[in-house]
Write a protein that binds this DNA or RNA. Structure first.
Lengths: 112, 112
DNA sequence: AATAGATGATCCATTAATAGCGCATATTCA
DNA sequence: TGAATATGCGCTATTAATGGATCATCTATT
């Protein structure tokens, strides 16, 4: 299995990470917030915030989302109530879905 | 500074992570894909995929995005070309923005 | 131009994340 | 129901992520 470090990433995943980092940086600057300030508020180190803004795929998703939340970047283009609603809806749907999948070999789509 | 493990997380960040995990699980099942299959295709271990689907905030964002991409879940409601465009646009905007931010002074005002 | 401050990068110690098992349970399908 | 297999979870060794410090450079403001 590939080491976490040099993990091959699809273009989409890489781009999504990069974009998210950019959005955080933009939002932070627009709010005239210092990297150090954002780090402090998010409970992260300054270095980590810098890596987040660079789109480093190794950052913990919790850290990234927290930083994003603090500067007001909305994930899924939705506010908190909407997220809660979606979570609830999904819980119901997931309950209705098969709990385990019997390999019906669908062919891969790696090309995106 | 808080240890990465018990890092306090805002409701929004936590919900976003949970929702993302749910969506991955849903999409995986809908595609009749096994956890092991998804893990293999994403280059991750089975255990990690399970944590991703549970919304564990400690997972590397690269791993999460990769799994999400493979099952077709998109954080940003846009395809890859659009992401690339957004990244480019942001690069321009960021270039036009101040490169460092003057900390908002929280000086005590005792003059009134 | 001078200066205070922000950013970016590097290094190290600590700690957590991950892979890779194995095992029990749950679940799908014949 | 029985058989196959997917899932869930715990364990350990290894590896990477993180925090914290320092330093050099860049930038904004006076």
């Amino acid at each position: 299995m590939a080491k976490p470090a040099d993990r091959p990433q699809s273009r989409y995943a890489r781009d999504a990470g990069l974009l998210l980092g950019q959005l955080v940086r933009r939002a932070r600057i627009e709010r005239k917030m210092t990297v150090a300030e954002l780090a402090e508020r998010a409970g992260l180190s300054r270095g980590l915030v810098q890596r987040i803004e660079k789109g480093d795929p190794g950052c913990a998703i919790g850290a990234v989302f927290e930083a994003a939340a603090i500067v007001g970047v909305r994930l899924f283009d939705a506010g908190q109530p909407m997220l809660a609603g979606a979570i609830d809806a999904n819980r119901t749907i997931l309950a209705l879905m098969p709990r385990s999948v019997r390999a019906a070999r669908i062919e891969a789509r790696d090309d995106f």
